[in-house]
């Protein structure tokens, strides 16, 4: 086992222990988290509230991430967001609808909506067809999701997951049909497309803060603290590397 492997394992263990530690009741009580304001997420909360009141539907798009690929954490965040949106909109007439571009994520989103229906005693309004695959290639996925966005009853859209340049179609559809759209992706291309299209866009790691800001679970706020610690470590490492490089050591 080489140094890189040890270091990798150490980072994973450190992250797991950090999440466990900061999730603890004692630490949360003695050192409450202070979150900076992200206005876009406040607007999303308000939009979910409005959709509950006016009986419209929230659409969550998970993008084209592949469940069997290492680039899927953005869609996993999307599933957490779907769970929370399901909880927040459970008092409304219309449960959320979820679309995805991968079979695995389509089944997982069905499972999430089923779990929400059980938790909130709204089994009677649960329809397994509220979460579905709209296409297996990025373009076919986008076109299928556009169809859902254009449907009457969907006024709020949350696009959280992996998207490419083709997300320009989704952005155009939401501009035309939706009252509010929040977009977040791990792809820099998609972030710039969403920003240019005028959607509320989360940049960079703000995507991973979404469940914590929606008040999902203590572990999500703990994750943000661990992320901050890791960022400090990486920053320190970069500065140290630059100094060593300039001074000619190593």
């Amino acid at each position: 086992m080489n140094l890189e492997s040890w270091l990798g394992l150490l980072i994973v263990v450190f992250t797991a222990l950090g999440i466990g530690l900061f999730s603890g009741r004692k630490v949360r009580a003695s050192h409450p988290a202070v979150l900076r304001k992200i206005p876009a997420i406040n607007r999303l909360r308000r939009a979910i509230g409005v959709s509950v009141e006016d009986g419209s539907r929230v659409h969550l798009s998970l993008g084209s991430a592949d469940l069997n690929d290492a680039t899927n954490p953005s869609a996993l965040v999307g599933l957490s967001v779907l769970h929370r949106i399901g909880q927040l909109s459970s008092s409304g007439d219309q449960p959320p609808v979820a679309t995805s571009g991968d079979g695995g994520f389509a089944l997982l989103s069905k499972d999430v909506l089923s779990a929400v229906a059980s938790e909130t005693n709204t089994r009677e309004s649960y329809d397994p067809n509220q979460a579905f695959l709209t296409g297996v290639t990025p373009f076919s996925y986008e076109l299928g999701a556009m169809d859902v966005i254009a449907e009457s009853g969907v006024r709020t859209n949350v696009l959280v997951g992996q998207f490419g340049a083709e997300s320009g179609f989704l952005a155009a559809a939401t501009t035309e049909h939706a009252d509010y759209t929040l977009a977040a992706s791990d792809s820099i291309v998609a972030q710039s497309v969403f920003l240019a299209s005028g959607q509320d866009t989360l940049i960079g790691e703000e995507l991973f803060a979404l469940p914590a800001y929606l008040g999902y679970k203590p572990a999500h706020i703990a994750s943000l603290r661990v992320q901050d610690l890791l960022r400090l470590l990486v920053g320190f490492g970069l500065i140290l590397g630059a100094i060593l490089s300039v001074t000619g050591v190593g």
């Binding site: 797991a16 999730s23 790691e205 999500h220 994750s223 992320q227």
Partner: peptide
Amino acid sequence: ILLGIALGSLVTGVRVLIGTDRPYN
């Protein structure tokens, strides 16, 4: 931006790994 995304991905993956996030229950 990518550095932030990498750290976020790591933490999300670990959360699923230790079972605090369970999209399969």
